[in-house]
């Protein structure tokens, strides 16, 4: 009935070690928890070495140093992260952070405006004025448009919520609540799915009661 594969047994034991927390906190769980953190970090370190540093830095440098030596510049900037652990020079870590922030901010502004603002606004307006969508289609388009505006008005804190703004913000809250309810409904499925995955493993691969 039970699996004969020792690796499956190890996987089952590790699963049960984590599940044991449901009864109460215990040393079996704590060991598994610490092992998980360590293994995850070690795993990610090896992946970063094998899949990023070796092909993108070391290989080009060893293959043709004359042509690829400029790669040493980002490598040296990246190495400044180490100074986080040298208190006297810890300010040097601000340089790679600054490069990352400058690039990240600069490169993201235009696409973010395009994706999250312009495209969304275009779509909201197009939907609310799409007569060819038919009666209900147009009605839902207009409702969505009202929903967007009222939701935005709820987040408008520069003025006190009274008068028309209060009415609009109140409607916005209702839309937000429907949205949060929808997220909740989906979250239930998501969390349950994760449990199902583990139970399927225990019943299928370990105990063999499901085939």
């Amino acid at each position: 009935m039970f699996s004969h594969d020792p690796w499956v047994w190890i996987a089952a034991i590790m699963t049960l070690a984590i599940f044991s927390f449901l009864y109460k906190e215990n040393w079996f769980y704590r060991i598994a928890e610490h092992l998980f953190v360590g293994m995850s970090a070690g795993y990610a370190m090896a992946r970063a070495w094998n899949n990023a540093l070796v092909p993108n830095l070391f290989n080009p440098l060893f293959a043709d140093f004359g042509r690829n030596w400029p790669l040493l510049i980002p490598a040296l900037i990246g190495l400044l992260y180490i100074f986080r652990f040298v208190p006297k020079f810890s300010h040097l870590i601000l340089i790679p952070i600054a490069v990352g922030l400058g690039l990240g901010s600069g490169l993201s502004i235009a696409p973010t405006i395009q994706t999250d603002i312009i495209k969304q606004m275009q779509s909201a307006i197009a939907d609310a004025s799409n007569v060819s969508a038919g009666g209900w289609g147009l009605a839902w388009g207009i409702l969505s448009f009202i929903g967007v505006l009222t939701t935005l008005s709820y987040f408008f804190f520069s003025r006190e919520h009274k008068g028309a703004l209060k009415v609009s913000a109140s409607i916005g809250i209702w839309f937000l609540m429907v949205g949060f309810g929808a997220s909740f409904g989906n979250t239930v499925m998501g969390r349950v799915s994760l449990l199902i995955g583990r139970v399927q493993f225990l019943l299928t691969d370990w105990i063999h009661v499901i085939r």
Partner: peptide, 15 residues
């Protein structure tokens, strides 16, 4: 499923 509700604006806009 936890995050799916957040992507409906992208679906609706054809992104």
């Amino acid at each position: 499923a936890v995050s799916s509700a957040d992507y409906y604006p992208f679906l609706q806009s054809g992104q």
